[in-house]
């Protein structure tokens, strides 16, 4: 039972151990810390209907990152909101206190606020707001365990939850992140790789429509690296969208007609 656990009790030693040089993270043969090749994504587990009380919900596990998203609505907007012809989308991301290796503090941190805004921007382009006028759809994302690539997992999981709730959307949004270590591009980075990265690229797109809904880039990138990175991300997003589709299709097997 104990072997499946990662020891995580130390004070500073964890951070210290993670901040090793990039040479330790990828071997000369191109094998990453967790055994993957540089352009390989983590094994993903997706499930809808995880939360009973919500209109729609989804649970996603990408390696060590675990996220649960629940969608409420459409329901009446609070009276304080002004009348609007289109619906409102309210996004909120929070970390569980046990999510990180170092125990977090209660209360909304700036990281949570930033993620909430990013989630909204990533979903805005995909949700057909005009189909639920005067009402609000609430999207609550909870990060149970943070293992790297948190925001893209939250985006994909939220889009799956919205589909599960029956909210009209133009397409499913899938997202992936990429870390650059020197000239190595590592797809779907883990926490250790993210801490040591020289640059990062996060992409959210609507795969069938071939539209990018969110793009974040940090670090200095050469043109070659940039185009390769974009291509890798787009391919990964398409594969992830396929996985999300089959998850939705499987959930129908629970409904007998």
């Amino acid at each position: 039972m104990a072997a499946s656990r990662v020891s995580s009790y130390s004070l500073e030693s964890q951070r210290v151990s993670l901040a090793r040089g990039s040479s330790a993270l990828i071997s000369p043969e191109g094998v990453r810390e967790d055994g993957r090749s540089p352009h390989e994504c983590r094994p993903a587990f997706l499930q809808t209907g995880a939360v009973n009380a919500a209109a729609g919900s989804a649970y996603a596990e990408f390696g060590q990152t675990k996220v649960i998203v629940s969608v409420f609505g459409p329901r009446e907007s609070k009276k304080a909101q002004a009348y609007s012809d289109i619906g409102r989308l309210n996004c909120n991301v929070s970390f569980a206190t046990f999510a990180g290796s170092v125990r977090g503090k209660a209360g909304q941190s700036t990281e949570e606020k930033e993620y909430s805004q990013m989630l909204y921007k990533g979903l805005e382009g995909a949700v057909a707001l005009h189909t639920f006028p005067k009402t609000t759809v609430d999207v609550f994302a909870l990060i149970l365990q943070s293992g790297g690539g948190d925001l893209p997992v939250v985006l994909s999981c939220a889009s799956l939850a919205l589909a599960d709730a029956g909210i009209v959307m133009y397409d499913l949004v899938s997202a992936i992140s990429l870390s650059r270590l020197d000239t190595n591009l590592l797809l779907d980075a883990t926490l250790g790789e993210e801490i040591n990265q020289d640059g990062s690229l996060m992409l959210a797109c609507m795969a069938s429509r071939n539209e990018v809904t969110q793009l974040l880039l940090t670090g200095e990138w050469s043109q070659a690296n940039l185009s390769e990175g974009l291509k890798l991300c787009l391919d990964a997003c398409t594969k992830l969208a396929g996985l999300m589709r089959s998850t939705l299709k499987e959930s129908t097997s629970n409904i007998e007609d």
Partner: peptide, 13 residues
Amino acid sequence: GNYHPSAFVNIAD
């Protein structure tokens, strides 16, 4: 009596 599986569509299909 079950729905025909081919009638199932996903978003953007």
